[in-house]
């Protein structure tokens, strides 16, 4: 560790006798990151809206292939919803422990969040495989197919990105413990993860539930 780095690390240590109320926003960089991720999420809102709009425009363009009512089933989607909603709560717990400066518990809850996300992803892969093998419903079968896989797949891609991010984050900090240098990183991840959950809420509503209704 170079001299400069040592100074930097010391400056970010959390004094156990004087824990900042918001470790994630105790430094200028933390404040920047906090606003930065929110601005980014505002941008993501439009990104997903474009996909939702495309999906809504094309959801009846089945070109003789399976329709929404024939494809979707409620049980799996309900399970996926529960998994992702719960992972949102567990990341809230993680941030709660961050504020109490309890690094181990924070890592634990973040780990649970990651596992739930992984389970969600497993379900999604199973769902896609099911559509492809049992219905021959692919990205190429119709405009509806393209729009469906683009929207749900884009969300799935965000989950994959989030999980990789979380793994790198947890691994890199496992030995360092919590300080005001990495607290913003955890907080940024948590906000991103909540946002993925919000998008899923609209996916299960607009795609699956409204697709079942017809």
């Amino acid at each position: 560790m170079s001299h400069q780095e040592a100074i930097g690390r010391n400056a970010h240590k959390i004094d156990p006798n004087n824990i900042p109320a918001e470790p994630a926003r105790a430094t200028a960089e933390g404040k920047h990151k906090h606003l930065g991720i929110w601005i980014f999420l505002g941008s993501e809102t439009v990104l997903f809206a474009s996909l939702f709009g495309t999906y809504i425009a094309l959801k009846n363009s089945t070109a003789g292939g399976p329709t929404t009512q024939e494809l979707y089933g409620l049980e799996l989607v309900f399970l996926m919803t529960l998994l992702l909603l719960t992972s949102s709560l567990t990341s809230v717990y993680a941030i709660y422990h961050m504020k109490n400066n309890n690094f181990k518990k924070m890592q634990l809850w973040m780990g649970i969040t990651g596992l739930l996300g992984l389970a969600f992803l497993g379900c999604e892969i199973y769902e896609f495989a099911h559509y492809i093998t049992d219905y021959g419903f692919t990205f190429r079968s119709s405009a509806f197919g393209s729009a469906f896989y683009a929207l749900v797949g884009f969300h799935g891609g965000h989950v994959i990105f989030g999980l990789s991010w979380l793994i790198v984050l947890m691994a890199r900090n496992a030995k360092r413990g919590l300080d005001t240098y990495n607290a913003p990183k955890y907080n940024t991840f948590a906000l991103y993860w909540h946002f993925i959950d919000v998008v899923w809420v609209f996916i299960f509503t607009v795609v699956y539930l409204m697709g079942m209704v017809g």
Partner: peptide, 30 residues
Amino acid sequence: FMHLKDKGHGPASASIYGGMLIAFLTILGL
């Protein structure tokens, strides 16, 4: 969950609500 109701979240709220407005227009248009 994301603490948008807390103090000091004005600019954050503005970005997400702005995004929602444009999102609404986009979905409406398409």
